[in-house]
Design a protein around this nucleic acid. Structure first.
Length: 281
DNA sequence: CTTTGATCCTGTCGGC
DNA sequence: TGCCGACAGGATCAAA
C-alpha cells in the first residue's frame, strides 16, 4: 500500500475538502472490501461533520462530531479521489475505473470524495469511541514519536533472529514502514537486510532510526512515491520515486560515489528487497 | 513465543 | 496481437 508518506500525503490533501465539512450523503457500493463494511456505515456518516483528520501508521482517521471516527486503510491499491468544482484543473485519471469506487461521500459544499480500490485489500471501518480499534491497538510507535529511540529498537529487536528487513515491516515494532522505505532506510544506514535484527549494535540502530525519519520526511515533502497506484488526493503524482537509491533499481550502480557495487534484488518472505552488497553489512 | 508461508483480489508488464 | 506467468507499495491467519 501506500506507506506512511503516501498516507500522510493523502491525509493532507483531504483536509481542505473534508475537515470541518458536513457529509450530506454517504454511499457504500458493496458490502465488503477486505472485511465487511459496518452495516450502519451510511447511517453513521450521513449528516456527520468531520472535525479532524488524523493518521496512525498507514490508517487515516476522520473524527466525527457525533463521536467516533471513520477509519480508512488504502491497502495496496486504494486511492481517495476528490471531485470538486473549486479544483480548476481537476481531472480524473481514466485508469481509475469507476467500478472500483466502493465508498462515496458528498459534502454540503458539493465535493465528492471517493474511496477507490481495485484490489480491495483496503478497509473501511468505524471507531465507535474514536480511539481504540483492534487494528490500531497493537501498533508500534510512530517513527516520529519521542519513544522511537535506539534503545526502544534494541529492546524490540532483542533475541529476534529474523532478518532486520522483516522486523522493520512488522507494524508492532514500528508503525508505517513498508517495502520501499525499509529498503531505502537500510541502504542509508549501511545495514544488510538479511542481518538478524537482534544482532545490530546500538550505535548502528541510532543511525538506522535517524535514517528512517530522514527518508520518511523527504518522501512526505515530495508528496510520496508513485509507482503505479499512489496519487495525492489532488490526483497529482508524488515524485519521491525519482529519489530512490536502491528500491526497484536492480542491476544499476550503487549511487554512492566511491562504490563500484551494483544494486541486488533478493526475495525475503515473498517480498523484494533491494540493497548494495558492498555498502550494507 | 517466534517465524514462515499461504492467502485475499485485480491489474500490468514482459516474454514468447 | 494474444496468451501466460510473475509480480505489485499490506496485513492476517494457521501452522510448524
Amino acid at each position: 500500500m501506500p506507506e506512511l508518506p503516501e498516507v500522510e500525503t493523502v491525509r493532507r490533501g483531504l483536509i481542505p475538502y473534508l475537515e470541518g465539512q458536513r457529509i450530506a450523503r454517504a454511499e457504500a457500493r458493496r458490502p465488503d472490501l477486505r472485511w465487511p463494511l459496518p452495516p450502519d456505515l451510511v447511517q453513521v456518516l450521513t449528516g456527520a461533520t468531520v472535525t479532524g483528520l488524523r493518521r496512525r501508521s498507514k490508517y487515516i482517521l476522520a473524527d466525527l462530531d457525533r463521536g467516533g471516527a471513520l477509519l480508512l486503510h488504502l491497502g495496496m491499491s486504494g486511492r481517495m479521489v476528490i471531485e470538486d468544482q473549486r479544483i480548476a484543473s481537476f481531472h480524473r485519471d481514466p485508469a481509475i475505473l469507476a467500478r472500483h469506487d466502493h465508498v462515496v461521500l458528498t459534502t454540503d459544499a458539493g465535493t465528492v470524495i471517493t474511496f477507490n480500490d481495485a484490489r480491495r485489500f483496503g478497509m473501511v471501518d468505524l471507531l465507535r469511541d474514536g480511539t481504540s480499534h483492534p487494528l490500531l491497538d497493537h501498533l508500534g510507535p510512530e517513527p516520529f514519536d519521542d519513544i522511537f529511540t535506539p534503545e526502544y529498537l534494541a529492546n524490540a529487536f532483542k533475541n529476534r533472529r529474523l532478518p532486520v528487513k522483516q522486523a522493520l515491516l512488522d507494524q508492532k515494532i514500528v508503525a508505517g514502514l513498508g517495502n520501499i522505505y525499509v529498503s531505502e532506510s537500510l541502504y542509508r544506514a549501511g545495514i544488510d537486510p538479511r542481518r538478524a535484527a537482534g544482532r545490530i549494535a546500538l550505535r548502528r540502530l541510532a543511525i538506522l532510526a535517524d535514517h528512517i525519519r530522514n527518508v520518511l520526511s523527504e518522501a512526505i515533502n515530495a508528496g510520496g512515491s508513485s509507482l503505479r497506484d499512489h496519487r495525492q488526493a489532488s490526483g497529482e503524482l508524488g515524485y519521491f520515486q525519482h529519489s530512490f537509491r536502491v528500491y526497484d533499481r536492480e542491476g544499476q550502480p550503487c549511487p554512492r560515489d566511491e562504490c563500484a557495487g551494483q544494486i541486488n534484488r533478493i526475495v525475503q518472505s515473498g517480498r523484494s528487497s533491494f540493497f548494495c552488497p558492498r555498502c550494507q553489512h
